[in-house]
């Protein structure tokens, strides 16, 4: 195989406690730590492992968003991506527009595999990979926990509600990653220095001719309903009594 394209979305770090803005216009992101979407980090790690075992020659990291996304792309380059592309967009890019942008990048780069996280931990949509596969007219293997290649086919184990499903997909294909696919490597300091010299191309989203108009409008944001404060019991007898009280023990 030749090239692997990996998507890296810049999101609020998964350790940050999310707060909704008082005016309901969104969640607080000012001064909040931003990171690579964890599922995308797994996608990049998998791409690097595929390349390291000789099954691919180049790994290209792609991000869509404001100029600050260069930080996440530099981290991706430090992890081992060969080069990076930032598609600069001022506004939020919804999954359909993101899929359209990836399709344009595919047209330029002709990758054999596009590896994306199964969802982004900000909007939790879980759509971009599937939409891209549809627009591209190619296979999708979502929620992957194992990927193997032979003769132009990927055999992908998928984490589904019923267990583990294995499907074969002809390449090129879109694969989206689940948590247990791998554990991403840590970035070492010398690699961060080296990453600064790796190529990072910036393209304006407008130059790709993709319709960026939002599909939906967000009316308001609010915190989730709180559960009422519970009680602590001292022992099993107390637990039994509390359950009986709620009519939960037959």
């Amino acid at each position: 195989m030749d090239k692997i394209l990996v998507g890296l979305k810049r999101v609020v770090d998964y350790n940050v406690r999310i707060r909704v803005k008082p005016d309901g216009s969104g969640v607080v992101t000012d001064g909040v730590k931003m990171s690579i979407n964890p599922f995308d980090e797994i996608a990049l790690e998998e791409a690097l492992r595929i390349k390291e075992r000789g099954d691919a020659s180049e790994v290209i990291a792609v991000s869509i968003g404001p100029p600050d996304c260069q930080q996440q792309l530099r981290t991706g380059l430090a992890m081992g991506a060969d080069r990076a592309i930032l598609v600069e967009a001022d506004q939020e890019t919804d999954p359909l527009a993101a899929a359209g942008i990836f399709l344009e990048i595919i047209g330029r780069e002709q990758p054999d595999i596009v590896l994306l996280g199964k969802q982004a931990i900000d909007d939790d949509c879980s759509q971009t990979g599937q939409m891209l596969a549809a627009l591209w007219g190619r296979p999708q293997a979502t929620f992957a926990s194992k990927i193997e290649f032979s003769n132009g086919t990927a055999s992908v184990t998928r984490e589904v509600d019923a267990g583990l499903e294995v499907i074969d997909v002809d390449l090129p294909a879109v694969i989206t990653t689940d948590l247990r696919l791998n554990e991403p490597r840590y970035v070492k300091l010398p690699d961060i220095m080296k990453a600064k010299k790796k190529p990072l191309e910036v393209i304006g989203a407008g130059d790709l001719g993709v319709d960026m108009s939002p599909q939906f409008s967000a009316v308001r944001h609010e915190p989730p309903a709180e559960r009422q404060k519970g009680v602590m019991v001292e022992d099993v007898d107390g637990l039994i009594a509390a359950l009986k009280d709620k009519d939960l023990l037959g």
Binding site: P95, Q130, R158, E159, F216
Partner: peptide, 23 residues
């Protein structure tokens, strides 16, 4: 919004040229 629906619905939406609402 099971793994079945999450896998399928976005593909349907993209073929129809519309966005998709999750969950």
């Amino acid at each position: 919004s099971t793994t079945f629906g999450k896998d399928l619905a976005p593909r349907v939406a993209a073929l129809l040229g519309v966005g998709q609402l999750s969950d």
